[in-house]
Design a binder for these strands. Structure first.
Lengths: 334, 334
DNA sequence: TCAGTGCATGACAGCGTTGTCGGGAAAACG
DNA sequence: CGTTTTCCCGACAACGCTGTCATGCACTGA
């Protein structure tokens, strides 16, 4: 900027004014400055600008695994909202480790990001004290965090589970089991509790059968085989998220057991496998968008009380929820 | 930092030394400083540090659509390599628009990111002049860019297409067509050219049939119907990428035509749909990793000539490449 | 005892901007 | 024509940190 100033015979401040389109520069001076800028290819150094102004116009997103479609959709949505509002997005993944998450958060706060969208890793005692102390606005997504009230966007897990169970029941299933993901995850636990509660509320026979992860195709194959060999066999399972659904589908294919299935999380091609998989769809795009908007509102000074937004889920009915018998009927008639 | 210095009765420089674990601080001074740091919750302001040191320890990734699994895998890989080496990753999406891409790049350079990994959008005349002028190292992924030599990581499109065609031919197919994506994409064009060339080289009957995108399920349904009604009908198609594969699968399901299929890009559950889809697998994770490593090498001063890395593809043989007849045989015998 | 050596520490400048303020010239006004 | 207002513009400091260099002190060896 000093170079430009020298070349154009003005002060750095005037160059600054031109670059930022501030008023108070005569037309011809502006043109002169612009000419020099173009000639020597000057580009404003935003680092210095940030240091001076105290705002980074950057938000950060911390997730577990960017390659998981659920998170990548959230990520795409957050990036989009941020970009539209002139914020840049730093994405970081904690790979599910609270330790790494701590480090990542610290580093982001050192950078003075204006705000954070976080899918908290594993079990956490409370809002991270580092973050809390920094005063950086933060919005949690998918899983809440214990401790003082914070903005949170989660999806309606009990509602989703209920819709799944009710759908199976409506299709004649009575012995329904849950294949949850690792109970370390809050969502997995919440879905488990909802399942047990609804199972009992509906007066389904026996105790609610639940198997929590982590699952492998092998372990699931065995599990399903066991369940289907019981005196009153399980006829349908609900899978706790996209990972489990995938593994369960493989296990079913391998072992040949035919069970009803409702998966948590929609996925591409769910309608093309046989039978087409009925799912509880969470809307990660909306969740990401909602979180980003809420965060930016906070950054812009919104002081209203912390808010927990519960996003509705939607049951996408395909075929896997029917009784195997009725599925064959459909096939024959089509 | 000044506050800490005052409280601890040392100079800011000493605080700086402690914070950065520089040598030359007596043990007791260090402890005193640390105590103050903890007490008042000081956190280093990396913005200022960056301004002083000239290095941002940040790289940026520009892709088309973060929600597309192909890009989200690249993104996850780049983030991982970056994080391991203490770089942060800014992710930005250009949504396929060269204009937006220009803006995004400019903004990233203003931030003085240390390097860029870019999946260039659409058609581009050459290396972006803004970027070129800034001297920021850049690595292109998935598609090269015309103009001066630059580091590029692409996958072996001709090889991938050849393996697909050969596989289909080996399974008895002769009338093979290509469903490419939008010819605006370099990869789509390259795969088309490879297809035509191999088609002719193998002496397959007739002209190589090609239909480029953008495709919809509707348009594909019609296209496939037309092809299968010809005097010598097309018996197998190759789809140009994951998007097209998905649409084609839906179209096939809807129209009931039975054709051989080899898809470009592997996808989850490809093995569970009926018939299991044979694919040409590119390895986005390796591509992202390779690109990140190359970029960081450049940042660290690697001056060797620009390099184009061609990543091999791998044909994952499942069932969709067989002739429909032999597929039924398999089903009956299993 | 004195010069020489090494270590711990501090003063200072400067990274590239922008906010504040003040000054001078031109324009407007009485 | 003198005075006030308006408009442009520049000087300067400061954002928070770190690299350089200087300083002072303790210790060593002759």
């Amino acid at each position: 900027m000093a170079d430009v100033a020298a070349e154009a015979h003005v002060s750095v401040k005037t160059v600054s004014r031109v670059v930022n389109r501030e008023p108070g520069v005569r037309r011809d001076t502006e043109l002169r400055v612009r000419a020099v800028i173009d000639r020597i290819g000057f580009m404003r150094h935003d680092g210095a600008r940030i240091l001076r102004q105290g705002r980074t116009q950057t938000i950060a997103l911390v997730v577990e695994d960017l390659a998981n479609p659920f998170y990548s959709q959230i990520s795409a949505a957050v990036e989009r909202e941020a970009r539209i509002r002139q914020y840049q997005l730093i994405t970081a993944s904690a790979e599910g480790s609270p330790t790494r998450e701590r480090g990542v958060l610290e580093s982001l706060i050192n950078r003075r990001v204006d705000g954070l969208v976080v899918v908290p890793a594993g079990e956490r005692p409370a809002v991270d004290p580092t973050v809390a102390a920094s005063g950086t606005p933060i919005v949690y997504v998918d899983r809440p965090v214990r401790g003082q009230a914070t903005d949170t966007v989660i999806s309606d897990n009990p509602g989703g589970v209920r819709s799944a169970v009710e759908h199976l029941v409506a299709n004649g299933h009575r012995r329904i089991a849950l294949l949850g993901d690792d109970a370390e995850f809050w969502t997995a636990r919440q879905r488990r509790e909802a399942f047990v509660q609804i199972h009992d509320a509906l007066g389904l026979p026996g105790d609610a059968k639940v198997s929590m992860g982590p699952h492998t195709v092998d372990s699931l194959t065995e599990r399903l085989a066991t369940w289907s060999r019981e005196r009153s066999p399980v006829t349908a399972v609900i899978t706790g998220n996209n990972r489990v659904t995938l593994a369960a589908l493989h296990a079913m294919r391998r072992s040949g057991v035919e069970m009803g299935l409702v998966g948590y999380d929609d996925f591409e091609l769910a309608d093309l496998i046989e039978p087409a998989v009925t799912v509880v769809n969470q809307d990660p795009t909306s969740m990401g968008q909602k979180a980003a908007l809420q965060l930016i509102a906070r950054i812009l000074g919104d002081e209203s009380p912390a808010q927990t937004v519960v996003m509705p889920t939607r049951l996408i009915v395909r075929e896997s929820g029917r009784l195997p018998a009725s599925r064959s009927l459909r096939k024959a008639s089509s």
